[in-house]
């Protein structure tokens, strides 16, 4: 299970756009805590702390402990809204949970031992189809990441979701035969292909029908 991380938070008195913008001007990010059959709580968290956690792997599967008005609660990030241009976070959703709640959570897939993969050594390319996999488990059982061992894998080998080493108590939320990654054959660069690219593909469909 991933470690519980403490996050300093303050209650946000004003709802809506004005209060949220004021919080952002003060260097804080507006957020909300909901779930577990309790009323939702509007909070703000320091932007610098959030940036620090976002830069680390597996933010969405990390359990946070947030203290608001002296009351500590364990939460899981459910959504991070970002500005479409700057990419900076503008709002975060956190969900409370009880110890027995089974929740769907996206966990990062990490590939190991790439140097020991015969296929990759021979020039194959690791095509990652799914960077995260959705698991259903209790918050205490959320793994930090799912590790896939590439040692001994050849060109053409496929990693399916059902082959992932899941921790005890966790189940896949999606299709078991979903493809996680493929070791694809290298594209052989031929002289004819290069010449074809150089000549361009302007013959077909380049000009709208007059």
């Amino acid at each position: 299970m991933s470690d519980v991380v403490t996050l300093a938070a303050e209650a946000r008195p004003e709802a809506g756009r004005g209060g949220a913008r004021q919080a952002r001007r003060d260097g804080r990010i507006p957020a909300v805590i909901y779930g577990n059959k309790e009323p939702s709580a509007m909070i703000t968290i320091p932007a610098a702390d959030l940036h620090k956690h976002l830069r680390q792997h597996g933010f969405m599967s990390r359990v946070f402990e947030i203290a608001v008005d002296g009351k500590k609660q364990r939460v899981l990030p459910r959504e991070v809204q970002t500005d479409p241009v700057s990419g900076k976070p503008i709002h975060v959703d956190f969900m409370r949970f009880s110890a027995t709640t089974r929740i769907a959570v996206e966990v990062e897939v990490v590939f190991q031992n790439e140097a020991q993969s015969a296929g990759l050594k021979r020039g194959g390319v690791l095509n990652i189809v799914q960077h995260e996999v959705e698991l259903i488990c209790t918050p205490g059982e959320i793994p930090q990441a799912i590790y896939v061992d590439l040692a001994g894998m050849e060109i053409g080998d496929v990693v399916h979701a059902e082959a992932l080493p899941l921790p005890a108590g966790a189940a896949l939320a999606g299709e078991p035969d979903a493809t996680i990654a493929v070791i694809a054959a290298p594209t052989v660069e031929t002289a004819s292909a290069e010449a074809e690219e150089g000549a361009g593909t302007e013959a077909a469909g380049s000009t709208p029908a007059a």
Binding site: L54, R55, Q56, H57, G58, F59, V80, G87, E108, H131
Partner: peptide, 9 residues
């Protein structure tokens, strides 16, 4: 701007 996934900046 060059962008990457969260956690890969």
């Amino acid at each position: 701007r060059f962008v990457s996934r969260f956690g890969e900046e």
